[in-house]
């Protein structure tokens, strides 16, 4: 069952990802991207990271994908379907990406990862919460400041009138 689910999600994720980078229509790309996010949320569930799966949906689908779709819509006049999708180096880049994949795949399969499968903690969310205010308090605070700054920054950059 796990295998089936894994392959299901993996195929969804990868197929959608390929569509994301190749679809001519950017809005559709963005929609495929959402499918990728869902696929990955599924992967997270398989990995017993339900919290992360929900966060994935919440942030990636709810915020990032929405923002992207927004941006695509706001700049829609430029989406001339006749325009090429890729820049001139696309072939080279495709070759490079394939090569990179082969290399990475060889590496990740060859390295003897220190695998030690244990049970996933039942109280993962509590533990996560404790970590956020415990050892990771500073990153947590920094992340919050970062979000505020990013918000202010986005407003500064995109404000209408000078």
């Amino acid at each position: 069952m796990q295998h089936v689910m894994f392959f299901l999600f993996a195929i969804i994720t990868l197929g959608a990802a390929i569509m994301v980078v190749t679809t001519r229509n950017l809005l559709r790309s963005a929609l495929w991207l959402i499918l990728v996010f869902f696929g990955i949320a599924g992967i997270f569930v398989l990995l017993n990271a339900e919290f992360l799966a929900v966060v994935q949906i919440l942030v990636y689908v709810g915020a990032i994908a929405t923002l992207i779709i927004f941006a695509v819509m706001l700049t829609r006049q430029v989406m001339d379907p006749k325009q090429p999708r890729f820049n001139d180096q696309a072939r080279v880049v495709a070759g490079f990406a394939t090569l990179l994949f082969v290399v990475l795949a060889v590496i990740v399969t060859r390295v003897a990862w220190p695998v030690a499968i244990g049970a996933a903690p039942v109280d993962a969310i509590q533990q996560l919460g404790m970590d956020f205010v415990g050892p990771y308090a500073v990153p947590f605070e920094v992340a919050s400041v970062l979000l505020v700054v990013a918000m202010i920054g986005a407003i500064i950059i995109a404000r209408e009138h000078e």
Binding site: T13, L14, V21, L26, I68, V72, Q89, V93, F101, A105
Partner: peptide, 27 residues
């Protein structure tokens, strides 16, 4: 999982490097 991630990473890298549209790069 690792190979899945590697594949996704490379697809993303292709998109980031080959896409013409800036939003496409971001995706």
């Amino acid at each position: 999982y690792l190979v899945l991630a590697a594949a996704l990473f490379c697809i993303g890298a292709f998109g980031a490097l080959a896409r013409k549209n800036a939003v496409g790069v971001l995706m």
